[in-house]
Design a protein around this nucleic acid. Structure first.
Lengths: 192, 192, 192, 192
DNA sequence: TATGAATGAGTTTTCATTCAT
DNA sequence: GATGAATGAAAACTCATTCAT
């Protein structure tokens, strides 16, 4: 196993364990055992537990960002592109339960101090350009209501994320028809 | 300080500390010190840490439920009542940062196993009846889109909660006009 | 055992173990076992290992200071008082091997950052007044050579300390006659 | 870099780090980084950490021994030769702070078990003959007081060493005049 | 020979909980 | 009931040393 593979194995083990047991009920010794690395090796890759958890967040967030734009294409209509992203988000959270549980815990813990991206964009937010493209017309004029970006986010992708999260708790999955209804309602909600 | 006051002091201390330091970075010894009670006394009121945290959740959730319906009246129009609840939710999360941070952590932690209320309603959900009243007309026919309750929740109160949460991180507060715009969009989004 | 006695037991255990095994070959677990306290209890009394070691130094230094002036009296001649202190120092280092070994290690480790006492005197140096009394005549004029205090110290008490230290390594003890010869030579060395 | 140069680089790095951080707060990994050698390479030159530290002591002690007799000549008077050695010792400890700090730590640590030289002399003590030469007259009769060698040492070279050590802690350096006064006092102290 | 990632035993430290006073 | 010192199991982390490349 290469150096990079070992690092991935540690992150994967941590992801699985944290999803199952919680951020703070996951001792490093268990991550070591589950990943097949020794305790010392984890500290070779990460300075401490916190560093490992931040790295895991970055790793998961990157996966999510790739999933969010899968299938996107300039040929899609604005609403088509929106629906795609909305459904991608929903399905990611629904099918990647470990990732989803981890993100919930991490982003609501004191570990998390989100940076508002400016100037040079941080990798986790690398698909923001695509999101912005949906929000302006060909002339660069906004087509959405004049609301802060976080409000627009919560009325759209946020809704997908949170509904998917509810569905983890034993509720029946939503059929595609229902999802499209919700996605459409979200779209309408932010459009001028 | 009476028995009940001491219990409240413990819960208040725990609330403040957990909001600041996180659910799992808050030792019982610190709660003892901050509350002015001894470690032993805490174990008089609660069987263990988990019990204390569940009690705190109940306590905070009850506060929230009262805040949610403040000012409500049968004379308000449907949308008027909706706006009121939406704004109540937003303002609660915005002005009660400790409570808000605690709820975020608790409800995304392994402590939390939400029960879908049936038959006898659990106290935390005691204002659900009011919510349901908004969703049916005088003849008992639904006036909202035919969507699961959790979807309706996330498109409305959930949005209020999550936007308020973003605003904790240093973003400027939203003006009342903007909030009403968002509340209205949420209302439209779920109505038939 | 009272709270204070437990603290003393911990310090005594640490002293013995550090003298035997060295400052850094003495795990807290061993101090716990030797003292009859649990590991946790040590951390009740001291914030961490370093804090415990500083406390031990203070404790030992205080013992030494008391030993240094034992038998002293205003009626003794200058040289008589000097001889007394010199011999007290020698015998302390010679008979208190654990204390002596600990001081050697501590005061030559990076733990040690001696403060030059000014204005308010630190407890460890509480017998400095007695030392100064030996150095001036009734008119307050110095009777020693005009040398810095640390030089005077090293030519006198320091010599006692270091010779006693050599004698720990298996060399035969010095007879009282020899000690007085050395003490006298030291006295002569610093006198005008 | 040759094999021997690499060994020197390792010892120099260890010397600097131990002086700064202490004998037991200097991990081999840091010595590796500071010296530019890999961890494995260090174990090529030394069997283990203890071996490296003993080698460093030997290295430093040899440097000191050369410094001690620098400028010595059979033509110097007894006291002239004594003054030279005394000042050499003082200046070595004063100008070689890393070496000085290392020796303090090493010689007060459990690593150190000094051998009293008999028969064949160990290299570190190779200038003892020069010291002895100062102590007898042309007829081989002792000219010093009849005291054990360690006492004579502590009243002379030991004083130089310890005063220099005090001067490391921020005290102003001693002028040459003062040093000669002390050296002379030391000389007088041991002479018959 | 040189490298440096990996090891894992050993160390410090934490903290929920108990119980004698 | 209230106290808070004591407990000790469990956690995070360190570091001398090895060994495959």
């Amino acid at each position: 196993m290469t150096y990079v593979e070992k690092r991935e194995a540690i992150l994967q083990a941590a992801l699985k364990l944290i999803a199952e047991r919680g951020l703070h009920n996951t001792p490093m010794s268990l991550v070591a055992k589950e990943s097949g690395a020794s305790a010392g090796t984890i500290y070779h890759h990460f300075t401490d537990k916190e560093d490992m958890i931040h790295a895991l967040h970055h790793y998961v967030k990157t996966t999510f960002n790739h999933a969010l734009v899968r299938g996107n294409s300039p040929e899609l209509s604005r609403e088509g592109a929106f629906q795609l992203m909305w459904l991608n988000a929903y399905h990611f959270y629904h099918t990647h339960q470990d990732e989803s549980r981890f993100l919930d815990q991490y982003e609501n813990s004191p570990y998390y101090h989100p940076q508002i991206p400016e100037g040079d964009m941080i990798e986790e937010e690398e698909n923001l350009p695509e999101l912005f493209r949906l929000m302006v017309d060909d002339a660069g004029q906004p087509v959405t209501k004049d609301l802060p970006i976080d409000a627009l986010y919560e009325m759209t992708i946020g809704v997908a994320a949170h509904i998917a999260k509810h569905r983890r708790s034993g509720l029946p999955p939503l059929d595609e028809q229902t999802l499209q209804t919700i996605a459409h309602a979200c779209y309408q909600a932010i459009m001028k």
